[in-house]
Design a protein around this nucleic acid. Structure first.
Length: 348
DNA sequence: AATACGGGGGA
DNA sequence: TCCCCAGTATT
């Protein structure tokens, strides 16, 4: 069964490369085999759309042209450049990996999958991408695009977000990948998934694989890929205290774990199942209160209120730092904070 | 094996 | 609303 299936697809790469040569986007990281730049692009693009990550890629290349310059940077500056992109552990691991490359590998990136995957922030996908793109190692990439393409072509119903399903896809890809052009194969199959075999409204009516695609032959494209429902999000209530006299303002760096780790924000009092209005009423003098705003994360729905207050008990400022309002832009913050600062100047 | 971890775009 | 995005680390 498996052999027949793969025989049927033995000219897959030729067809794919033909499509790729006519349809590929011009992306900056495709013009280089410098592992530093490829690595940077791959970390930025983890769970991130190309359009969203592109400006960050340019900013990082400009601020840190080499792995040494990144390794020598202050972590807080790296966070600042990452601000707004999300999944902030990527910024921490980016910096950590750069230091390892410089201090342990003499500034030279590992030139193999097995070496690359030892670096923090580099998992199976990223190690496969870098080792194939830069060193022509035969390592198939398996990202969201590839999952979708393979599941439709072969009619695979194993949920793509279950770890156990990975082997099924990897086995197929290891047969399918062009052993002579692993870099082009990986680029092409991801690009095909991104711009042609899209999640919604795939271009099946003009598809090079019409004859071969299981999903198309059954007219069941929308049934693939199969995915198990994610767990429901939890709800939290954040009360932010805006404290400070004159040009001074108090902020705090979040802990090294949990959401928004190591990013800055106003002193926070989290409510239990509702906003802590009573507690705040009794404890501080409220000058002004914002409306509740909803901020959505993958696993949490956060309702936030901002309170301009005075006469705050010192215990609320435990671990906080006093900074000038004008220097707030120097501190890396999460989107909930930057959005508030953009839109609610009247509180400052 | 399951869960945590952002933010934004598109239907 | 819901789904998805060039996934990884932790539990």
């Amino acid at each position: 069964m498996k052999d027949n299936r793969l025989d049927f697809y033995k000219d897959f790469s030729i067809t794919l490369f033909h499509w790729y040569s006519h349809n590929q986007r011009d992306l900056p990281w495709r013009h280089t085999q410098d592992p530093y730049k490829v690595w940077l692009s791959e970390i930025i693009l983890q769970q991130t759309r190309v359009d969203q990550g592109m400006p960050y890629y340019y900013n990082f290349i400009e601020s840190y042209p080499t792995v040494s310059s990144l390794a020598n940077a202050h972590l807080d500056d790296v966070y600042k450049l990452w601000e707004g992109l999300g999944y902030y552990s990527r910024a921490r691991n980016l910096h950590k990996a750069a230091k390892i490359v410089v201090e342990q590998f003499n500034g030279v990136f590992p030139n193999s999958y097995n070496g690359l995957i030892t670096l923090p922030g580099i998992g199976d996908y990223t190690a496969s991408a870098i080792s194939s793109f830069c060193f022509n190692e035969v390592r198939p990439v398996l990202d969201g695009n590839v999952f979708r393409v393979i599941s439709r072509l072969f009619g695979i119903k194993e949920p793509i977000n279950k770890p156990a399903s990975r082997k099924i896809f990897k086995d197929i890809l290891n047969e399918l990948i062009d052993k002579h052009s692993p870099a082009s194969f990986n680029q092409a199959i991801m690009e095909f998934g991104a711009v042609h075999c899209k999640p919604k409204q795939p271009k099946c009516d003009e598809c090079i694989f019409q004859e071969k695609c299981f999903a198309f032959s059954m007219n069941k494209q929308s049934d693939y890929p199969v995915k198990v429902k994610p767990k429901k999000s939890i709800t939290r209530f954040f009360n932010y205290l805006i404290v400070g006299e004159g040009d001074d303002i108090w902020i705090k760096k979040r802990s090294n774990s949990g959401i928004w780790s190591n990013l800055h924000e106003f002193p926070l009092i989290e409510g239990q199942d509702i906003f802590n209005t009573e507690l705040i009423d009794e404890t501080v003098k409220i000058i002004k209160v914002s409306k509740a705003t909803k901020h959505i994360l993958s696993h949490q729905n956060i309702y936030a209120k901002f309170y301009r207050v005075k006469d705050v008990d010192a215990s609320f400022l435990e671990g906080c730092i006093k900074v000038k309002k004008s220097s707030l832009p120097d501190y890396a913050m999460h989107r909930l904070m930057t959005r508030f600062l953009e839109e609610e100047q009247s509180f400052m």
